[in-house]
Design a protein around this nucleic acid. Structure first.
Lengths: 225, 225
DNA sequence: TACAGCCGTTAAGAAATTGTTACGCCCTGT
DNA sequence: ACAGGGCGTAACAATTTCTTAACGGCTGTA
């Protein structure tokens, strides 16, 4: 899965940094804005997958900002989670009414924040109904089911093998060096020896045959075009 | 969309009238009941789209009433919002636990009430519209009766097991990770260890056999295709 | 031929993940 | 109050998957 981007809008810089740190640790890309106006601008430019919005801010407050977002065709579908200083009833409700998808009261527990974010994203994914299904050569690589199909054979690859294959297949023809593969498939802050990739490639070849993943000596691997 | 009907159950007549007035102004049809017992009776007769239920009432209190509603096949799908006099956490939690979908503390702000109602309804619209009877492989999973049938065997699975099976079966072939399963079957803001899913899967397998739910290591579970 | 750089292959041990069982809590109906 | 069922958790066993390290082969170069 491609990295997901979260836009955090809050006027407290410290909090912004703290949230950024935690979200990045969880593997999200993070964008920051310090007020509603800036938030909208950045949202338009980058189309984040989710917005974390403080309600009380100078210049343009969160509620105002969300109204704008919800009336912008390009942005209206983005899920929004509110941050509120106190669980003051009125704000809370107003927020849900204009189209927030959840709200969290400060002070924020990191785990809670993360799990809320993931919950909201999941709720949205089902609605979006993406097709995670690649068809390349004589293979069907179905990520929803985590299986690879060829003719009427069905292969159950282990997770890493599957994801590696999926990544390469989704970029058919493009060479990726081992380090890139590790970053994309294993994750950024993971420490493993890059020869590990070789082993996985070999296992894939063992199961599906040699003719899908090609070696580019001195560079890396690529899915055959 | 047709006018939506809301059943309000509260023993304070004045409040009942006030709420009625406001809901009607918003375009809802309103039914009233003054205690849990009466509430259930009216619910069965009219099948409202949502129930607003006071917790503290004479005769049969709200929690009790909701338990009945949740165990009545015709009524169990109706969203319920609790009204509580105090934001006593325990009652609050208990309420959500037996199947309330939201709760509001008195005194009630009208705007807040309305927007909560709308929010809950929105949430339900997305979820509803399910077929209540699945036929997969040699199984019939009947959600109306909470029963699984194979040939002339009939299995009475406990609630969680049933719902987990139902969820997976209704997405035959698609892998779901534990967290997603928890969110979908247990509910969003429920905190349970994700290994709980394993145990329930095991119990289902114990009763129906191993060949329905497949494990995808490192990912989650899926109903066999 | 000797050497260096790179990749393929293997097998073994480590790590991660799941299966299974048992226990305790809570609620319900008796 | 008590028995029973449903649920969530913890702990340990059983498996599967992942990594590493080591060795051998191939290719191009001096």
């Amino acid at each position: 899965m491609a990295k997901q981007t979260i836009l955090v809008v809050d006027d407290e810089k410290d909090l912004l940094d703290l949230i950024e740190y935690n979200l990045k640790k969880e593997g999200f890309d993070v964008l920051k804005a310090e007020n509603g106006e800036e938030g909208i601008k950045i949202a338009k430019e980058h189309n984040p997958d989710l917005i974390l919005m403080d309600i009380m801010m100078p210049k343009m407050d969160g509620l105002e900002a969300v109204k704008h977002i919800r009336s912008d065709d390009d942005l209206k579908a983005i899920p929004i989670i509110f941050l509120t200083a106190r669980s003051d009833e009125k704000t809370e409700v107003e927020g849900l009414d204009i189209g927030g998808d959840d709200y969290i009261t400060k002070p924020i527990s990191t785990t809670k924040l993360i799990s809320r974010i993931k919950a909201v994203m999941r709720r949205f994914e089902e609605t979006t109904e993406e097709v995670n299904r690649l068809e390349v050569h004589d293979l069907v690589i179905d990520k929803d089911r985590y299986i690879v199909i060829r003719g009427d054979e069905e292969f159950q690859l282990p997770r890493k093998e599957f994801e590696l294959l999926y990544y390469l297949a989704s970029r058919k023809g493009k060479v990726r060096d081992r380090q890139t593969l590790l970053n994309k498939v294993w994750g950024d802050n993971i420490y493993v020896v890059d020869r590990t990739v070789d082993v996985h490639v070999r296992k894939i070849r063992e199961k599906l045959g040699d003719h899908y993943i090609e070696t580019v000596k001195g560079v890396g691997y690529r899915f055959k075009e």
